[in-house]
């Protein structure tokens, strides 16, 4: 049995019984890599009372699920999670282990990699197979202006974290496969910090990574009042509002709306960038969008290099009229 579970692993991240989207996205990529390499995909699911999630993982591309269900794993704690992951790796010896570059994954993956003394690459934007089953991990560096390909030739598993929103989840197919419960063996003490409180709020807009249309604003918007124009335009499309760093610093937008190297990566059908200069830090978070329209009064704005359609004009003149025009067309 374990012979089928030493292929490509995906850490299925859940909080409060809710699966993080990136887990399904990673399964999609893992499935593609596994089919190419003739390997199996195994999802690792840790928590408490979470067995029902295994079906979802199977339906989205896993051949098997290893479930660690234990009250001590109910709320994420780094030390117990890292111990369990490392002992699973030792037992099954997987080729590849993929995790989401989420708040949890960014903390957990390096700890696991250090425990099993293997290599880990961070925030991958692409994964490919190279010679001899090597996982080629494509990562941005230097604010995204440089793309490096990383390999881990002599250590296993080959570990990588991937930003949410980059890989595509497969559409669900009802499948029956293996779900295997694992024994959780943890000591009484030495499990690190205890969790006192977890507070999560439902975001009030569609997650940026999921929006079909993203309207993003930059420093050029100039004021909280004009920022409302950005929000109105996004609302018209049922889209989400994104931002560069300055609007977040100014308080016009929330931290979670930031697009770029230190924020979200978006690949919407349409990205509209307004008053954005186009520094590399932002561009790497949006350059994979299907269509890119940008509006900036500065004819030399760098963002134009990454645009399909360019408008050199004061957005205060263009956007209100565009809102009216779109509204009129929607009414037809």
């Amino acid at each position: 049995m374990s012979g089928d579970m030493n292929g490509i692993w995906v850490f299925a991240e859940q909080r409060g019984g809710e699966l993080h989207e990136v887990s399904l996205e990673l399964l999609g990529k893992a499935r593609e890599l596994a089919d190419e390499a003739g390997k199996k995909v195994t999802a690792i699911l840790l928590g408490h009372d979470i067995r029902s999630l295994s079906q979802l993982l199977l339906n989205h591309g896993a051949d098997s699920v290893l479930v660690g269900d234990d009250p001590r794993l109910k709320t994420y704690r780094l030390i117990p999670y890292a111990r369990v992951m490392a002992s699973l790796v030792h037992t099954y010896d997987p080729e590849i282990l993929l995790m989401g570059a989420t708040y949890m994954g960014v903390e957990l993956a390096p700890r696991v990699a250090a425990k099993v003394r293997t290599g880990l690459s961070a925030h991958c934007i692409d994964l490919r197979l190279g010679e001899k089953g090597q996982l080629l991990q494509v990562v941005p560096g230097w604010g995204g202006g440089v793309i490096a390909t990383i390999a881990c030739p002599d250590h296993r598993p080959q570990m990588a974290t991937v930003m949410p929103g980059i890989m595509k989840a497969l559409s669900a197919i009802e499948r029956e496969d293996t779900v295997k419960e694992i024994e959780i063996d943890l000591p009484e003490k030495g499990l690190g910090p205890e969790v006192l409180e977890v507070k999560r709020e439902k975001p009030d807009q569609l997650p940026l990574e999921k929006a079909e249309v993203v309207v993003a604003g930059g420093w050029g918007i100039g004021s909280q009042e004009d920022w409302k124009m950005i929000e109105s335009l996004a609302e018209l499309f049922g889209g989400s509002v994104g931002a560069t760093r300055p609007p977040v610093d100014e308080g016009w937008a929330e931290e979670g709306q930031m697009i770029g190297q230190s924020g979200k990566t978006v690949r919407p059908k349409l990205y509209i960038g307004i008053g954005i200069s186009g520094v590399m830090h932002h561009v790497v978070g949006m350059d994979q969008s299907e269509h890119i329209i940008t509006i900036n009064s500065d004819p030399d704005a760098e963002i134009f290099d990454t645009s399909d359609v360019i408008v050199v004009e004061d957005f205060r003149k263009v956007v209100p009229k565009l809102i009216d025009e779109i509204r009129a067309r929607l009414k037809k």
């Binding site: 290599g119 880990l120 080629l136 793309i147 490096a148 390909t149 359609v309 004009e313 263009v318």
Partner: peptide, 30 residues
Amino acid sequence: PTKMAGIELRRFERAREKLDGSVDEIVESL
């Protein structure tokens, strides 16, 4: 354990089509 297998400067290539004309024409076109 990790080795650099390649490195390149990232390039972003797009159509870069500039819309000209009056504001009304630009809006219509957009």
